[in-house]
Computed example of a mutant assay.
Amino acid sequence: MTYISAQPRLTSSWDDICYPVQPVWLADLLPEYDIMATDRQQLVVGQLEGGRKTIFGIHSADYAIIPNSAIREVVDALMTGYQLQIKYTTTGEFSISIILPNTVAIGGELLHRSLILTNSYNGKTPFSLQGVSLPTLLDTSTAVGGSVYRDVCQNGLMGWADKFNDLSNYQAWLQAGVHQDTSRSARRLPTKAPSKGSNPLLRTIHHRGLTIEVFQQHLRDLLADHLKAEHNLTATVYDHLQQINVSSATVQLLRKLPVPVQLAKQAQERLRLEERLLNSPPSYWLLYNAVNYALFTGRSSLTLNDRYRLDERVFHQLAAQAYG
C-alpha cells in the first residue's frame, strides 16, 4: 500500500497532539454489511481542533489505542520543569522529546539529557521508549538506552550505543560488520543486563488487549526506573565523532549512507550551515547531526519508525568509520 508523503511538524505544546481519538467499529458504520475481514474491524478516528474527523488507521478488534493524553498524564505526574519538543505528522505519528535540565558536554556544545517516546494512531510507528518498542520490551534482557537533545538543530539524538556494556564491546560489534546487516536478527543487539530494580511485569506491555490503566502503570514504572539510570557510552562515541574531521569528499560519504538521495542533499546543506554557525570544520559529529536533521524534518513517505531505523544505521556506520 502506498504511504502518504509527510513532513514532520514541530510543536512545544501537548495540546497540539492531545486531541480526541477513539475507536469506531466498521460494523456500526456499515450495519447492512457482513464484514469478513476480521483482522480489520476497528477504525482509529481523531479530530484536531477546528478540523474534520480523520481516519488514521484500521486495526483488529483487540488493538488498543494509546492516546497521547495518557502519555502526558504520566509524564506530568513524574516530572516538573521539563521542556517539550514534539515532531508529528498529519498521518498520525508522534515523536515526543522530554528535555531534562541535566546536560552533557560534547566538544563546545552542551546537550540536554532527554527522553524520547514515539506513538502513532496509524499503526506505522509503534509506541516506544528510547527506541525500544513494546514487543522488544517483552525480552527481559533488553536495556533501555538514553537520549540527548541538541539546541543547535532542535533534534533529539537516540542513545544507539547505550545497549552495549562498554566501548570495547561496541567497537568489536562494529568491526564484525553486524551493523551492515539489515536483517531482523542482526538488529537484535547484544545488550547489557537490565538494572536490578527492573520489574519483570514491565515486559508484559503489548498493544493487543492493553488497557490504558495498565499501560500508564507500566509506563510510570519504566520512566521512574529510567530517570535513575546513567547513560554514558553514546556520549563517549559522540565525543569521538566530534574529534574526527570529515575529508573533503563529503558528498561521496553521504552517498554511501543508507538515506534517500533527496534527504542526503538536505543533509549536505545542513552540514554546510552548521559549519558556518559553529565556525567549525566538518566532523563526523556534525555530519551525523546533519543527516539526523534531514531525516526528521524532510518531506518523505518514510514513517517516523523508518526514520529512526535509518538514523540508527547511519550512527553505527559513521561510528565504524570514525573508529576504523
Rank of each mutant, 00 (worst) to 15 (best):
S97Y: 13
I86G: 03
A64Y: 06
I71L: 15
N102K: 11
G51C: 14
L48Q: 13
A77Q: 12
K87Q: 11
G81R: 00
V44A: 07
G46M: 01
Q83M: 11
L43F: 00
I96C: 01
L78N: 03
Y63L: 10
F56N: 05
R52T: 14
D62E: 10
Y63S: 06
R52H: 06
I66W: 00
E93P: 02
N102A: 13
R72A: 11
L48F: 11
L78S: 12
V45I: 05
N68P: 04
Q85G: 12
S95M: 08
F94M: 09
Q83P: 05
T90A: 14
F56L: 13
T90E: 10
L78P: 10
H59P: 10
L84G: 04
K87W: 08
Y88V: 07
D76R: 05
E49R: 13
I65P: 00
S60Y: 10
S95G: 14
V104M: 09
Q83C: 15
A77P: 14
G46Q: 00
V104C: 15
I86A: 01
V104P: 09
I98K: 03
N68Q: 08
I66N: 00
L100H: 02
P101V: 02
G46P: 03
G50N: 05
A64W: 11
T54H: 14
G92E: 11
T80V: 14
L84W: 01
